[in-house]
C-alpha cells in the first residue's frame, strides 16, 4: 500500500475569491446615471429546480416513459477517456441508432448525460452545469470504475470518486473501460429502469438539491455560477 503522511492536513480555511467578472460593480448608463450590477443576480435565473409530478393518468405516464426510453438522446460530452468507447456505437458494427439512441450537440435537447470516465473537479463543474441545463426527465450514466470509486485515480487530489454524490446517477457501467457491448447492455438496463418509472433522477436532484449542492461546493471551491444553472 501507498505510504500516507498522517500529519498532512488539507487547507480548509482559505477561501477562493469571487471571480472578477462576477463581482458586483457600478456602471454608468448612457444618461450618466450610476447603477449597480450584480452579475450573478442579473445574468442568471435564481430559481431552484422544481419537483415535477408525473402525469395524472398512469397509462399516459407509462406511454411517455416508453417514449423516453426509446428515444435516448445522449449529450455529446466526453469527460474522460471513456468518450472514445462511445464512437463505435454509431458504426455499423454496433449501430445504436436502431435502439432509438442518438447524439445531440446541445444540452437543451439531450436527456442522457454520459459521464464517460474520470471526472476531475474542474470537469465536474462543467458536468454539473451541463446536467442542470438539460431539461427533465434526464438521466445520468456513469461509465467505468473511475466514476464508481475513483478507479485508478483513487488517490488523485483532483478527481472525484463517487459520482452519485454530485449528480443523481441512474446507472453505472463498470469496467476500465467498459467495451461498447457493455454500453449497449447498460442502455438496455436504463431503458428498463425508465419504462418502470424508476428513473426519476431529475426529481431526486430537485428534492435533495441542498445535499447535492453542499457536496458539489465542498469540492468546487471557486463556485462561479448560480446554484442552479437553468
Amino acid at each position: 500500500m501507498k505510504h500516507m503522511d498522517p500529519n498532512f492536513r488539507k487547507d480548509t480555511k482559505t477561501e477562493f475569491p469571487q471571480r472578477e467578472e462576477l463581482k458586483p460593480r457600478k456602471v454608468t448608463t448612457p444618461d450618466g446615471q450610476v447603477i449597480d450590477i450584480e452579475p450573478l443576480q442579473d445574468y442568471f435565473c435564481q430559481e431552484p429546480p422544481k419537483v415535477h409530478q408525473k402525469s395524472y393518468f398512469k397509462i399516459v405516464e407509462d406511454f411517455y416513459n416508453w417514449c423516453r426510453a426509446e428515444s435516448l438522446w445522449i449529450l455529446a460530452f466526453g469527460t474522460g477517456c471513456g468518450a472514445i468507447e462511445m464512437r463505435p456505437l454509431m458504426t455499423p458494427r454496433f449501430d445504436a441508432y436502431r435502439y432509438g439512441i442518438q447524439w445531440r450537440a446541445t444540452p437543451r435537447q439531450a436527456n442522457l448525460l454520459m459521464i464517460s470516465g474520470y471526472l476531475s473537479v474542474k470537469t465536474l463543474k462543467r458536468a454539473i452545469r451541463t446536467y442542470e441545463q438539460m431539461q427533465g426527465p434526464k438521466y445520468v450514466v456513469g461509465l467505468g470504475s473511475c466514476t464508481i470509486n475513483g478507479g485508478m485515480y483513487w488517490d488523485s487530489y483532483n478527481t472525484i470518486k463517487k459520482l452519485e454524490e454530485y449528480l443523481p446517477v441512474d446507472l453505472y457501467i463498470a469496467g476500465c473501460m467498459p467495451r461498447p457491448e457493455a454500453l449497449l447492455a447498460g442502455f438496455m438496463e436504463l431503458k428498463k429502469k425508465i419504462k418502470a418509472g424508476n428513473a426519476e433522477g431529475a426529481n431526486k436532484y430537485a428534492e435533495k438539491f441542498d445535499w447535492y449542492k453542499a457536496n458539489q461546493k465542498a469540492v468546487i471551491k471557486d463556485w462561479d455560477m448560480p446554484d442552479y444553472n437553468w
Binding site: H52, Y64, C67, E70, S71, G136
Partner: peptide, 12 residues
C-alpha cells in the same frame, strides 16, 4: 417517438 418524448418533457 422523438416527437412525443419532446412534448413529454417536464421542465421547460
Amino acid at each position: 417517438i422523438d416527437l412525443v418524448k419532446n412534448i413529454a418533457l417536464r421542465s421547460k
